[in-house]
């Protein structure tokens, strides 16, 4: 069964978002359920640092043994950091999707956009519906 942390927000396309303590930076990754669907991850393509990302737009690509999949940014913002460890160790996306397997960080334009995202409960329902 997939794990779904209670302190994150989610997208129906299986990304997660965490608002950091500074109140304006978010960290983005893909969920346990997503990595399970993809299988072993072999490459991750990241956005450039400084890139202006529009909500709902493609911000990167994750390639697994099975398929290539776009990573969508849940909200608008400016990329401040990307997870360089994924260059040499893409398997972190499989083993620690919510921790060392994060993708990138953004300074968000408007934190209120987070309100529109899926709650852990709503995301859990979506995953269960997909599994049946």
């Amino acid at each position: 069964m997939s794990t779904i942390p209670g302190d994150l927000k989610y997208l129906p396309s299986h990304e997660w978002v965490r608002l950091e303590d500074d109140g304006e930076t978010v960290t983005i990754g893909i969920t346990h359920h997503a990595q399970d669907l993809l299988g072993d991850v072999v490459f991750v393509e990241m956005p450039e640092i400084g890139a202006e990302i529009v909500a709902g737009e493609e911000a990167g690509v994750v390639e697994s043994v099975k398929a290539a999949s776009d990573i969508f940014s849940p909200i608008a913002g400016t990329v401040t950091e990307v997870n360089e460890d994924l260059e040499d160790s893409p398997e972190l996306v499989n083993s620690e999707p919510y921790d060392d397997g994060w993708f990138f960080k953004m300074k968000v334009s408007d934190t209120e956009e987070l309100e529109g995202l899926m709650s852990p409960d709503a995301y859990k329902e979506l995953c269960e519906a997909e599994e049946h």
Partner: peptide, 8 residues
């Protein structure tokens, strides 16, 4: 079986 954990 597709894999038993990690196909790689």
């Amino acid at each position: 079986p597709l894999h038993y954990g990690s196909q790689i």
